[in-house]
Each structure stands twice: as C-alpha cells, then as structure tokens.
Design a protein around this nucleic acid. Structure first.
Lengths: 224, 224
DNA sequence: GCAAAAGTGTTGTCGGTACACCCATGC
DNA sequence: GCATGGGTGTACCGACAACACTTTTGC
C-alpha cells in the first residue's frame, strides 16, 4: 500500500521525434546512427532529455535543432512510452513526437553525429530502444491525421501541382487515389488556391501551381 | 548548445486520471479534495508518482485502487502535460489518462482522503494544478471516441435499455439525438444484442434489455 | 383511460465512387 | 506526331436526416 522504496532513483523524462518527409513518392523518416553501446551501430530517432524550464514540445524542437539543424517545422506530441525495460541503461520514459518537413530542407551533417539520413518509414533499418514501436505508432497517427486535417501543407513545398499533392497522399496512405475525385474534393473544400503560375521544365503538359490556403493546423474533411 | 546545468535536479513523472461516469443524464468526473498547501481545499484528479517497475498506465490503475478503490475499469493514456509551472512545488510532468466506469460502482471513502465525489464534468469546482485543462482535454477526447468506438460499454451497466444508451450518448455529446435513427444505427452495426429480459418496475411501457456484443475497445462507426 | 416511454418505416437529399475522354506540352 | 501527365463531367448507389404514429405498461 505504501511506497516500497522511499528514496528510489528518479525516473527520467526524454523526448523522441519521428520526422517525416515525402520524397520520390515515398514516406521517409529521419534517423541518426548511434555511436555508443549498448546500441552501437543501430539507428534511432532524434531525441534527448528534457530540461527544467521547457515543455516536452519545446524539448523536442530544441533537440531537433541541436542534432539535425531542422527548425520551425510542424510538430505535435504523440504518445508517452514507458515500458520499464525500454532503455536498458536508465529508467526513462519517452514522450514521442511527430514532426513533418517539406522535401527540400537540408540537414546539418557536419558535427559529432556519425551519420544522419532519410529511410523508408515502412521498412526502416534495425532501430534502438523501442523506436520501432514509436515509428509504427507515428505512421499510423500520420495516416489518420491526413484524413481529417490539412497537415499535408507541412510536407509539401510552398507551391505544388495537384499531381504532386496527390502523390504525397498516396505515399502516406499507401494506396492509389482516383485523380478526378481527388481533385474535385480538394477544390471543393477550399484546401488550396491557384497561384497563377505553371510548373514548366518537365516534359508533357505543365500543371498549374497551387498553395495551401491556410498553413496552420486545421480540421478539414478529406478522403475516406 | 551544451546543457547549461550538468547536475540539475531531476524532472519527475506523475500520472493523473480523469474518471468519468454518466448518472442521471449527466456526465460526471471523480474528484478528490486536497488537504495540503498550496492547493488546500481545492479539488483534483486522482493521481501520483510512477514507480520504477511499472508503465504509466499501470501507475494510473494502481493510484486509482489506492485512492478510490476502483479497479478493472477501462483506461487509456491521453496526453502528457509538461508546463514547467504546472506544479509550483516540484518540476513534474503529468501523463494524463482517461478512465470510464459504470454508474453503479461504489467508492471507498473511509481512509485518509478527506473527501471524494462525483462532479459535473462540464462545470467542475475550482481545480488544483492544471487539472482544469486536463479535464477539458479528457472530455473532448471522450466525445471523439464515442463517435467511432464502442467505449460506451464501459459507462453502462451490464444490461440496459436502448433509451438508457441513448441518454448516455446525449449526456456526453451534449445534444439530442433522434430516437428512430439512433436505434436503427445501433442495431445495424451489431453494437448490442437483446438479453430477452425487460426493464420492469418503472411506470410506463417496459423496455427490452440489451448488452454490448463485445466488451473490449473496438472501432465501430456510429453517429455523425 | 391517460400519461409516458417504447418501438417501428418511408422518403428525399447529399456525398462518394466509379468511370472515359480531351488537352497541352516536350521531345 | 506521339507519349505523357494535366484536367474535366456524369451516373449510380448507399448512407444519413427528417419526420408521425401505434403500442404497452403503471397508476
């Protein structure tokens, strides 16, 4: 009934972030290579301990800046993973986060971290800790949010064609969509607006360029 | 860039639980009265620190048993609240949980806690910490889950009439539903099955009694 | 017999899905 | 001129919302 150990060592609080992007029609996640035991050589999601004067969301943003150079991206809290065995070295819960970036960002690869890179979100390499479970959960949540919010704005560049938007949706949802229905629906709910410009340079007929009408998180019904 | 304080005091991990029930057509939440400063006399959600050998969900269940006598209820993790100022006494993040009980459970009121009771979830008394925000978030999530899952089974007794089920839905959603459409939909998706008995004793025509077909969390479409 | 809750059917509308063709450009 | 992705219109179908009356019991 009473606490068994009065002065037990503290339970730590960390954050981890699953950062996604869509490139070449594929959903990809950002991973770092670990350099120290016990997970030497394995890959992991960026993250770290939180500080006293910040929320977990702020910690997630700070860790991303420090470890990857990414800033100002779309980010939200996901779930707290707390299996006592999740970290073999220290008792530590992890508040997992989901983040999205457009495909044209550049990573800072110069510093102490041995390697950093984008990997297929559906078939990642072997991951440290419980990061495989975190990644699976993040993909699931992203799929769900895509259906009833406008989060896609955080995954695409400022301007894009409807074909590019559709391919981003297809990459995340993992299934093909009907172009005619997709375009009609996207326009019906005023998700995007024309910029007046055309995508030239590629072969074939140039597509009209669009931008998102609102570039902050909003609930909006699209696509069952 | 580097950690400012190498040996900063640890950030604690606690859990809090918003326990709901529906009684007399109203959504109610379980609150405890605090006995110690700085929130003496205010009410709070049940909760406490986690231990080293348990997940946050297990900690939530354990705290509920210790503080309220409730056990074996429906429970899920909600969100982690981490404002550095949320607890004026100790730096501590709280992993909030949502729990549901049927209206006929009894609370243990005998021990050290000065008071415990059910309050209207929409108009609670003055709450300690950030528990008002946690409660609001929990109500929002409960409403959402009611729409696409069968969680209502955790709020109703073993047997109930369709009228009672509808009133529970109306209490949580905060709006009236059409009886004919409600009954048709509930039966169409095989949410419930007849027990063959009737609700007698009240005045007026007795209703048939039903039970939920499955009494574990399942996704099922009901009610826009 | 009357008050009150239980229970049942039909119709119109809207949104979703399925589907085929013409258009504009680069090569 | 042809291959390729861009872009548009229609028809069917199912789900949902709106709506009124009969039934059964306790008092």
């Amino acid at each position: 009934m009473k606490e068994p150990r009065i002065h037990a060592p503290p339970v730590g609080v960390a954050v981890d972030v699953a950062v996604f992007t869509v490139r070449e029609g594929r959903l990809e996640v950002l991973l770092l290579r670990m350099t120290r035991p016990p997970f030497e050589g394995k890959w992991c999601l960026p993250g770290g301990r939180i500080r006293h004067d910040e929320t977990v969301e702020a910690a997630a943003e700070r860790e991303l800046v420090e470890k990857t150079g990414l800033s100002g991206l779309w980010l939200e809290q996901l779930y707290t993973f707390s299996d006592p065995a999740r970290d073999p070295q220290a008792r530590c819960v992890s508040v997992a986060h989901l983040a999205l970036v457009p495909p044209d960002v550049s990573l800072r690869t110069d510093d102490k971290y041995s390697a950093i890179g984008w990997f297929p979100a559906e078939r990642p390499p072997s991951l440290a800790f419980d990061h495989r479970a975190i990644l699976s959960y993040a993909v699931k949540r992203l799929r769900a949010k895509l259906e009833y919010t406008n989060v896609a704005y955080a995954l695409l560049p400022e301007q894009f064609t409807l074909g590019e938007l559709q391919r981003a949706y297809e990459a995340i949802l993992g299934r093909a969509l009907d172009t005619r229905n997709f375009q009609r629906k996207v326009r019906a709910i005023d998700l995007v607006e024309e910029t007046g410009e055309l995508r030239t340079g590629q072969a074939h007929r140039p597509g009209r360029l669009f931008r998102f009408r609102v570039r902050r998180p909003v609930e909006i019904a699209v696509l069952t």
